[in-house]
Amino acid sequence: MKLVSNKYIIILFCFYITLVLKFSFIGVGVSFPERLLGNYDDVSHNLIPFETIGTYLTNFHHYNFNTWFYNTFGNVLLFMPLGILLPLIFTKIGGIKQLILASFIGILTIEFVQYFTLLGVFDIDDIILNLLGVVLGFCILSQFTKFRKRIIIHKFR
């Protein structure tokens, strides 16, 4: 994979990855400090697609807003920048399929580390929502690129 030489995008990407890791692992210490002390009684993993998403969307009134928002839209929003930054940095990732595969490997790695360290919960729905965020980010990048090309073409007519 060829790396784009724009150092500002690379710095932004490194900052972004740091935030993702913070929210994925260190953030658990804030939400569940007992896990850092070795108490894992509240850990439950989800391997059934759309079970958690369905629960949050149909029973949203049973959760406080922060829990509901973070576990649904937060998972999407957190990974939208990945759909923008990966294709900008790794120019070989030109299509959506390659982006989804690369993102899936990274997201799955995070989920497995959460599973084995118990600093987080392995949830198949997190993977689905994260990938949705990646795809939405890529769509934003694609639309911006098309818009930018139209402006440049229009400017030189």
Results as ranks from 00 to 15, higher is better:
4 V>T: 00
114 Q>D: 07
118 L>M: 14
97 K>E: 15
122 F>E: 04
37 L>C: 01
145 T>Q: 06
119 L>T: 03
43 V>Q: 01
77 L>E: 05
24 S>L: 04
76 V>F: 07
78 L>P: 05
47 L>R: 05
101 L>M: 09
130 N>T: 07
54 G>R: 06
84 I>D: 06
108 L>A: 10
7 K>P: 02
25 F>C: 08
121 V>P: 01
120 G>K: 05
44 S>V: 09
9 I>H: 06
154 H>G: 11
32 F>H: 14
122 F>D: 03
112 F>W: 13
139 C>N: 11
87 P>L: 02
117 T>I: 15
41 D>L: 00
153 I>C: 03
128 I>G: 09
111 E>I: 08
39 N>F: 09
64 N>I: 07
134 V>A: 07
72 T>K: 05
45 H>K: 04
142 S>D: 06
110 I>R: 03
52 T>Q: 02
66 N>V: 10
155 K>E: 12
107 I>R: 02
117 T>V: 14
93 I>R: 04
124 I>A: 04
3 L>I: 15
63 Y>M: 00
110 I>G: 02
93 I>G: 03
151 I>S: 11
39 N>K: 13
148 R>P: 01
65 F>L: 15
64 N>V: 03
156 F>S: 12
7 K>H: 13
100 I>F: 08
48 I>H: 13
1 M>Y: 13
60 F>S: 13
29 G>S: 05
84 I>L: 15
128 I>Q: 10
145 T>S: 09
31 S>V: 00
53 I>W: 07
42 D>G: 12
48 I>P: 06
145 T>F: 01
91 T>N: 02
78 L>H: 08
93 I>L: 15
11 I>C: 11
74 G>N: 09
35 R>P: 11
153 I>P: 00
79 F>C: 06
96 I>M: 09
135 V>N: 05
122 F>N: 02
59 N>Y: 13
81 P>C: 10
41 D>W: 00
154 H>P: 01
22 K>L: 11
148 R>A: 14
50 F>V: 10
87 P>I: 02
9 I>V: 15
13 F>A: 15
22 K>W: 14
66 N>Y: 08
105 I>C: 10
118 L>A: 12
64 N>S: 08
73 F>C: 07
145 T>H: 03
116 F>L: 12
124 I>K: 04
40 Y>W: 11
47 L>C: 02
